[in-house]
Simulated assay, not measured.
Amino acid sequence: MSVTPPPSSPGSGRGAFEAALRGLCPRCDNKTLFAGPVRFAARCRACGLDFSAFNVGDGPAAFLTLGVGALLTALAVWLELAVEPPFWVHLLLWVPTGTIAVIGSLRVAKALLLVLEYRRGASEARLRDRA
């Protein structure tokens, strides 16, 4: 199945980041991209675009986890030096904040990659038979 966007695709009118942030289908702009917190739906319920044809993978996960971890570590060190709260305050503050930040940023990053793949017509490389 071809995933190349038609020239007058309604989804091409929105910015890629906005479409990713809202979980919009890149073809029809309906909010059908996700079936779970970071899991894509198999296909768009409105236009039938097959999301499994896109190879987004979990590439952004390591970078996002490291970036969010570095930011939260810096904030935790600052809080410790400035206020010296008890250890349980750090647990109650940073564990949920880190979890929400990683899942939220992973959702947006994966959706952004899918939207950009669709809009650029990107696909897996195929070797031609040279018989």
Rank of each mutant, 00 (worst) to 15 (best):
M1P: 15
S2E: 15
V3E: 11
P5E: 00
P7I: 00
P7T: 00
P10R: 00
G11E: 02
S12H: 14
G13Q: 09
R14Q: 13
R14M: 15
G15I: 02
G15R: 05
A16P: 12
F17E: 06
E18F: 07
A19F: 01
A20G: 04
R22W: 10
R22T: 08
L24V: 01
C25L: 04
D29A: 12
D29W: 06
D29C: 07
N30T: 14
K31R: 15
K31T: 13
T32W: 07
T32S: 08
L33H: 01
F34M: 12
F34P: 10
F34S: 10
F34H: 10
F34T: 10
A35W: 10
G36D: 15
P37K: 06
V38F: 03
V38G: 00
V38R: 02
R39F: 12
F40V: 10
A41S: 05
A42L: 08
R43G: 13
R43T: 11
R45D: 15
A46I: 04
G48F: 04
F51R: 04
F51Y: 15
A53I: 05
A53H: 00
F54E: 09
N55I: 13
V56G: 05
G57K: 09
D58I: 04
D58P: 06
A62C: 07
L64P: 12
G67D: 14
G67K: 10
G67R: 10
V68C: 00
V68T: 06
L71P: 08
L71F: 15
L72W: 05
T73L: 02
L75Y: 06
V77H: 02
W78H: 04
E80A: 11
E80R: 07
A82R: 14
A82I: 13
P85V: 04
V89I: 07
V89M: 06
H90Y: 11
L93G: 07
L93Q: 05
W94F: 15
W94Y: 15
W94L: 14
W94I: 08
G98S: 07
T99V: 11
T99F: 11
I100F: 15
A101R: 02
I103A: 03
I103R: 02
L106M: 11
V108S: 06
V108C: 04
A111F: 01
L113P: 04
V115D: 02
V115R: 02
L116R: 06
E117H: 08
Y118F: 09
R119A: 01
G121K: 02
G121P: 03
S123N: 09
S123D: 14
E124C: 07
A125T: 12
L127W: 11
L127P: 13
L127E: 14
D129Y: 12
A131D: 12
